[in-house]
Design a binder for these strands. Structure first.
Lengths: 119, 119
DNA sequence: TCTATATTTCAAATTCAATTGAGATATAGG
DNA sequence: CCTATATCTCAATTGAATTTGAAATATAGA
């Protein structure tokens, strides 16, 4: 992840419909969702969802595959992780307490054993 | 962190000068940096850095305090952590391997003991 | 092949953000 | 009080992104 990619990713995430799409795909997991399903959830026209899906794919935050008449989109988890890494790299020089909350926040959904998170 | 705040934060981070400011402040830690120092690092005019600092402060990603003739800006770590949390909330439904890299990435800079990170 | 479904492309109109330079404000020190 | 430093405000210009609806493309099945 370099500065160009990060700027493109943040620009993609700064639009209401696109942020909703990414969050829907993040919770949907690797199975992903079809363009039509996303248009329904986000309540926008098919031409509009197509435009935003293209923007998100161009930024690298999502990926697509065809399945019959549908195109299935899924979150690009490594890109999301790379983006967070880029933003927080070298944080808190000698003051770990300032960014540990971010780690704890992520651990809530990512700990396989569930032994340090609230769930 | 709600959707409105997240959209505002991502919009703030989608501009080159502002992204650089935030990254400089993230690495600078709680001590922060003066507006003039940031203008020098980012190589922009004083009026331009002022505009972008206001945008970042309005989005909640940075905070300011006056110190003599200077205004010192610092990263709002809880806002950054909240933003990451908002984006990744409920990720990876049953597939923890997809977002653990994001946790590992953050742990690099935030582990007080340094016992699970590369450093 | 014909029809229906799913998605994309295109062009036009609207709306919003970034840059620039001059001038205003606030603080420190002589 | 006067000057220098540091930052901010303002207004004008420029450029980019979003929305919309109609039409085009691609796939599936009868």
């Amino acid at each position: 992840m370099d500065e160009r990619q990060a700027l493109s990713a943040f620009a993609a995430l700064s639009q209401e419909t696109r942020l909703r799409i990414v969050r829907l795909l993040v919770t949907a997991g690797p199975a992903g969702l079809a363009a039509g399903a996303l248009a329904g959830e986000a309540r926008v026209s098919s031409s509009n969802i197509s435009f935003h899906l293209k923007e998100l794919e161009r930024s690298g935050l999502i990926q697509s595959r065809r399945e019959g008449r549908s195109i299935i989109y899924r979150a690009a988890y490594p890109a999301l992780s790379g983006l967070i890494q880029f933003l927080m790299r070298d944080c808190c020089q000698g003051h770990p307490e300032v960014c540990t909350p971010a780690v704890a926040a992520l651990a809530i959904c990512c700990n396989p054993k569930g032994d340090t998170a609230h769930a």
